[in-house]
Design a protein around this nucleic acid. Structure first.
Length: 813
DNA sequence: GAGCACTGC
């Protein structure tokens, strides 16, 4: 039962990553960071802290970090940079606030407190080489492991550079990260934050929340936000540099950003050349340096060849021989920055620099199972109690499982077994953690552990990247996760339990070594580990590409088959998506983006939902406001609460009956949103009464507001349409026609045997039990979601007439 | 005839 202890580490004294004197500092620093991450999870975002000093401007001191003694210069003694101002009129134009006043004392104090922590970060000694690298070249690939400090320090290092006259953008995959990093950097710089004051130098931009001002020089934003900006301002004229962080996570958005940036720095975008070059820093945790360097290096070389052809410049000819630097960082651990352009001084800016920064991590011992198991719940249970009896407190346990059901199963078992423990054994506190859990329940992992208690956090993938659980010294990893996979042929998504990659396993293990030395129990054998894929398949290789391609077309990247992909999706997947966009009339027959397609690309919606919206704005449909309500409800998590017990389910059914519509789920959503809005006194109580999620409804209202704004910007909101509180028959038909136009590939007809078969593809589908049409028979259905979980399910279903469907199909084929 | 990893605009 007990997993074997690995012989390698047994009895051997574990070596720390650093000496004992620095350990204290490190611990202090780590602790701060974790508290700060935990705060960011909460509401309010601490915006009040500096609020009473709104008018006080911190000193502008661009030189401050240059000599590694940034903060020790007295405020007010700032350097004058008249030469810089005359060289860069843009800076004057932006009128970045100047420091005529002293800093608020508490802001100063905080800044000075943080300085020693900053200085102890592994990235701090690299400041000179990072700056030199970007003076020499326009692209830097920086590899920094967890805890290196790259996300907070790199933008600060670059701010004082002569080329940096505008703003630095730094992207994050998640909202919380963008917001909390911005707050941290503001504190470190002794600046106010966000839009507290026009002089605030650090800000962030995430959906529904833009906290930037005229003085913003460092701007943290989500990847999606940057992409939207890139559609509106193709040259990225407000930025001197773009830092792309967490590239190793390889979201579709990051892949698009990298492709666009490569074209931009290489100047291959037709007619798009910036006056001053854009500096690009690509930051990644794992050592994918070679692929990234090659990716940008090839682009630069192509452009250098173009220059040669155009100008006949003999100097440029030499670029051809200048290969991009492809040294792996591990091979040169003592040489922090590599650049191959030094031997070709005439060829500045045509190469890619690399930099490797070591991480900060305590050692973690790995323990494998002697033989494979299928029963993770049972095995986890044994290991949890084995750790609990054997290892001293403190030291919480983090268990990685695949989903809600296994988590709840294990939680129940732990609680049962824990009751049988002797009174002298410390208590065990099992805490589930998954995204669908209400916010307050998720917050429980951040509350201090009660005395003589060990926390056991039972988590999904959410704890791998999104949430940092404090206090963990033991990790149990089942080696699997649920992965979404798009099937091109069927056009449906499936969620499958699959083995994780080696890099994910290493990431999970690392969660045990954030605060002290730890242990990682892998519920698989060492051989099992060795057979795992090296890295997780990037999302772009396993998702529906229609949205990505629409974005590319909207940005003028017309030749999608030759787009610079870091990983090129199979031709079949690209063609499938192009065809889908053609059917949606987002593209012309020639493949060029249509006027309609451009509007769809600018909406924060999938192409299908975007198409529904655009259709609703047409005069003959004239139902935009109702459709916006439906789309808003479809854009958020399920607005109807999931009930567990049979009794509560029946209660909910009865309470919701007045909302249900026989036309299907879409009209039911419309009525629910309308009734919620009609409720003027207590919407929260209304939600509780109808078993509707209040949080989800608040999100619906946010999305609705944003969509209406964008509709008016895109000149879609010009109709005479009025939302009726009870849509007429004709209105209902118009609404369903719009839904059909977007989801024509998601239609099915009733077969004589009572099953449904899709009209395009002849696939059997079933109406999902969550639908109001579950168990009903109607001649045809249209559905907004098509998922495979053991069986093909249609979710978000409306009843339609077969001849409506045929009409649309004939029109587009 | 019964289900849902995680982000994000």
């Amino acid at each position: 039962m007990a997993p074997s202890q690995p012989e390698l580490t047994k009895g051997k004294k574990r070596k720390r990553d650093h000496g004992s004197t620095t350990t204290e500092r490190v611990k202090k620093g780590t602790g701060k960071l974790i508290r700060f991450e935990a705060e960011a999870e909460g509401e309010g975002e601490g915006k009040t802290e500096d609020a009473d000093n709104k008018d006080e401007a911190p000193p502008e001191n661009p030189e401050q970090t240059r000599d590694l003694e940034p903060i020790h210069q007295k405020p007010g003694h700032r350097h004058e940079h008249s030469h810089k101002s005359s060289l860069h009129p843009r800076r004057q134009q932006r009128d970045f606030p100047k420091a005529h006043t002293t800093l608020p004392p508490h802001v100063l104090k905080k800044r000075d407190e943080l300085l020693p922590i900053r200085k102890s970060l592994p990235i701090w000694p690299h400041v000179k080489s990072i700056r030199a690298a970007l003076r020499e070249n326009n692209v830097l690939v920086l590899t920094g492991e967890t805890g290196s400090g790259k996300s907070t320090q790199v933008p600060q290092f670059l701010l004082s550079e002569p080329w940096c006259t505008k703003t630095i953008a730094i992207t994050q995959p998640r909202r919380v990260a963008a917001i909390s990093l911005a707050r941290r950097v503001a504190e470190e710089m002794g600046s106010l934050f966000g839009n507290q004051s026009p002089s605030a130098k650090v800000g962030y931009s995430v959906r529904f929340d833009n906290a930037t001002g005229p003085g913003t020089r460092i701007k943290f934003l989500t990847e999606g936000m940057l992409l939207q900006e890139m559609l509106r301002d193709p040259e990225m004229s407000q930025y001197s540099a773009v830092v792309v962080d967490e590239v190793h996570e390889r979201s579709v958005n990051v892949d698009l950003i990298l492709g666009f940036l490569r074209n931009l720095v290489a100047g291959v975008d037709k007619g798009r050349k910036r006056k001053t070059p854009l500096k690009v820093v690509v930051m990644s945790a794992t050592a994918d340096v070679q692929a990234l360097v090659q990716f940008f290096g090839e682009g630069l070389q192509t452009s250098a060849r173009d220059v040669e052809v155009e100008t006949g410049d003999s100097g440029a000819a030499r670029t051809k021989s200048g290969k991009p630097s492809i040294d792996s960082p591990e091979s040169k651990p003592d040489q922090s920055t590599n650049s191959k352009s030094s031997n070709q001084p005439t060829q500045g800016h045509s190469q890619v620099s690399t930099c490797f920064v070591e991480g900060r991590q305590y050692p973690v011992k790995t323990v494998y199972l002697p033989s494979p198991t299928q029963d993770w719940v049972e095995t986890s249970l044994k290991i949890i109690f084995q750790i609990h009896y054997k290892e001293p407190l403190p030291g919480d346990i983090l268990v990685f499982l695949t989903g809600q059901d296994t988590i709840e199963g294990l939680e129940k078992l732990i609680n049962e077994y824990a009751q049988g423990m002797d009174a002298d054994v410390p208590k065990l506190l099992a805490l589930p953690l998954f995204a669908a859990l209400p916010q307050h329940a998720q917050q429980r992992i951040f509350t201090p552990t009660p005395p003589r208690t060990r926390k056991v956090i039972l988590a999904t993938n959410i704890a791998e990247t999104s949430v940092t659980v404090p206090g963990v010294r033991y990790v149990i990893d089942c080696g699997k996760s649920k992965i979404k996979q798009f099937r091109n042929r069927l056009g449906l998504e499936s969620l499958l339990v699959k083995p994780i990659s080696k890099s994910a396993a290493i990431q999970r293990k690392g969660r045990a070594g954030r605060e002290a030395a730890g242990q990682c129990y892998r519920l698989y054998t060492e051989e099992g580990f060795n057979t795992m894929e090296e890295r997780t398949t990037p999302e772009i290789l396993r998702c529906d590409l229609s949205h990505a391609i629409l974005t590319m077309k909207a940005r003028g990247a017309d030749d999608v088959l030759n787009f610079p992909f870091l990983d090129r999706p199979p031709r079949e997947a690209l063609e499938k998506a192009l065809l889908q966009l053609l059917h949606l009339s987002a593209l012309e027959e020639t493949g060029a983006i249509s006027e309609q397609g451009l509007k769809m690309a600018k909406l924060p919606l999938t192409p299908t939902l975007g198409r529904v919206l655009v259709e609703a704005a047409r005069p003959e449909r004239d139902c935009l406001l109702d459709v916006v309500d439906i789309i808003s409800a479809l854009s958020v998590e399920n607005i109807f609460l999931n009930l567990v017990t049979e009794e509560r389910k029946e209660e909910a059914e009865a309470a919701r009956r007045e909302l249900y519509r026989r036309e299907g789920d879409h009209m039911t959503l419309l009525v629910t949103v309308q009734r919620y809005e009609e409720e003027r006194s207590d919407r929260k109580a209304w939600c509780e009464k109808h078993f509707v999620s209040h949080r989800a409804m608040q999100n619906v209202m946010n999305v609705k507001k944003q969509l209406l704004q964008q509709c008016s910007q895109l000149k879609l909101l010009t109709s005479t349409d009025k939302a009726d509180s009870s849509p007429s028959e004709a209105k209902t038909q118009a609404i369903l026609a719009c839904i059909l136009r977007g989801f024509i590939s998601n239609t099915a007809r009733l077969m004589p045997d009572g099953s449904y078969k899709t009209l395009m593809g002849n696939q059997t589908v079933s109406i999902h039990p969550s639908s109001v049409l579950f168990g009903r028979k109607t001649e045809a259905i249209v559905f907004s979601e098509f998922v495979f979980t053991g069986k093909a399910w249609a979710r978000g279903v409306s009843a339609v007439q077969l001849d409506w469907v045929s009409e649309v199909i004939e029109a587009i084929m």
